[in-house]
């Protein structure tokens, strides 16, 4: 093992002050290597979302350490965390989160705004990303005119814009039918094959089964499946 893992959680506990105090994550240890393909399953209320937030630098662990891409995140201030988030993590959400009044291209370019992608590279990169998800012909459409599968592909294109090391997908197929969810997962797997680490949080057992590695989270505790 010569390379540091992309994600490393060490004894991470996240508790929400009560009363009663709720421990959403309890002593979680988790390492995700470069190129890993991991699915996280668990019933609602089990701490999945909290784990996602901690992984995505959207929340801080109450106790424990989190290293993202080798960087100790506890020491970073909010601004540095935002910068690290922009450059290391690509998000894909269940609700797609595309701005309804901006074109597909604008939505994809949005990811370059805060991440410091060199200005000259932005447009070619966005076009390449859209080309890669097979939506080059929809560049000037508004997201509202696209189908669910197409929207999620736009979101995937946006997620890979800043060339992150990790894709965090929160129920990426939750709003899609079986066939389109298969297509979207195929796309994810292509990206993973190119070396991106992929974490998919899902309810869908079909989706979870496709991952090489799967963990279950129940009552704040993580167990490898």
């Amino acid at each position: 093992m010569s390379q540091a893992p992309v994600v490393e959680l060490i004894d991470v506990t996240r508790s929400f002050p009560g009363p009663p105090e709720v421990q959403a994550l309890k002593g979680v240890n988790l390492a995700i290597d470069r190129g890993d393909y991991l699915s996280i399953v668990g019933p609602s209320g089990s701490g999945k979302s909290t784990l996602l937030n901690v992984l995505g630098l959207l929340d801080r662990p109450t106790v424990g350490e989190y290293r993202l891409g080798g960087v100790l995140t506890a020491a970073l201030d909010e601004e540095a965390r935002a910068g690290l988030r922009a450059r290391t993590i690509g998000f894909v959400f269940q609700a797609f989160h595309l701005l309804p009044r901006r074109t597909v291209l604008d939505n994809v370019l949005l990811a370059t705004l805060y991440s410091g992608v060199p200005r000259r590279e932005r447009m070619p990169r966005a076009k390449a990303a859209l080309d890669r998800v097979g939506l080059a012909h929809r560049m000037d459409f508004l997201p509202t005119t696209l189908s669910g599968g197409e929207r999620q592909r736009v979101a995937v294109a946006r997620a890979v814009m800043a060339s992150p090391e990790l894709i965090l997908a929160d129920e990426p197929t939750g709003n899609l039918d079986q066939q389109t969810s298969g297509e979207v997962m195929d796309l994810f797997e292509e990206l993973n094959a190119d070396g991106l680490s992929l974490v998919v949080i899902t309810h869908d057992q079909h989706v979870a089964d496709r991952a090489r590695r799967s963990i279950r989270i129940a009552d704040g505790r993580v167990s490898e499946l």
């Binding site: 093992m1 010569s2 540091a4 893992p5 490393e8 060490i10 004894d11 240890n29 988790l30 390492a31 995700i32 290597d33 350490e65 891409g69 080798g70 960087v71 100790l72 540095a80 910068g83 690290l84 290391t88 490898e224």
Partner: peptide, 29 residues
């Protein structure tokens, strides 16, 4: 960290790796 019960082989133990580790701290941002 090595002493604590960490899961998998993600934990870095040897000195060489932690040097690259430190270098990454600066390089990642």
């Amino acid at each position: 960290r090595d002493g604590s019960a960490s899961e998998g082989d993600g934990a870095v133990t040897d000195g060489d790796a932690s040097v690259t580790d430190g270098a990454r701290d600066a390089a990642a941002l």
